[in-house]
Design a protein around this nucleic acid. Structure first.
Lengths: 106, 106
DNA sequence: TATCATAATATCAATTCCTGATATCAATTT
DNA sequence: AAATTGATATCAGGAATTGATATTATGATA
């Protein structure tokens, strides 16, 4: 169940990375693992496909080191979604971590 | 798709609220709406049931103002999950908002 | 005490997502 | 041209999501 809490985090991370540079599946798997998220190929690739399908990412195929990879970069649409997400993260932090969310717990 | 990003946020919020005081379904719907999350009964109630089922929340039935309500409070197990979530939120903030996550974007 | 109105909660059903296991693919090596 | 290897793709069973709808319990009313 707690994994469900973080599925969105993972997607936001992916969008964030893809806003910094072009990323591919295997790199994401390693990077996300470094950040404490256990993510396998069968989670990452379908997610990348979906993120591209909705227009948040765009891909290009490249051969590097003798292996074909598919690199993903963020789109304008994806940047917009990422921006919206950042706003929500701030809201979450203010409410849950700092407890500054004008809470009227009446 | 972007809604998927926030489904975890919503669950964390619920756990957070339930750690402050006993909460019921309708109150959560209003409160989450106040925080920008569109959440209806068919989202909140099954979620509450599941959170109770996994032992993060415990419920008690109360009659208030002539209406029966079910109030939920966090459990020790839920507190643990919430704590873990807070750690992840900080990590997310550092990486995505502050960009302090020792990122080796090689 | 039967019925009604109301608010809170519960369920349905179609769609979609998640993911361990497995398969496929393409570039290089032998 | 077969094998190797690393990267990506798919499958299939289970589970989650949610608009729509139904159910429930309480107090009021007659």
């Amino acid at each position: 169940m707690i994994r469900e809490f973080f599925l969105g985090f993972i997607k936001i991370h992916i969008l964030h990375y893809a806003s910094k540079k072009a990323v591919c599946g295997v790199w994401l798997i390693k990077e996300l693992k470094r950040h404490g998220y256990a993510v396998g190929p069968s989670t990452v690739y379908p997610t990348l496909h979906r993120l591209e399908k909705v227009g948040y990412l765009k891909s290009k195929k490249v051969v590097v080191g003798g292996k074909r990879k598919i690199f993903y970069e963020i789109t304008a649409r994806g940047l917009k979604a990422l921006g919206k997400s950042k706003g929500k993260i701030e809201e979450l932090v203010n409410e849950v971590l700092k407890n500054k969310g004008a809470s009227q717990h009446e």
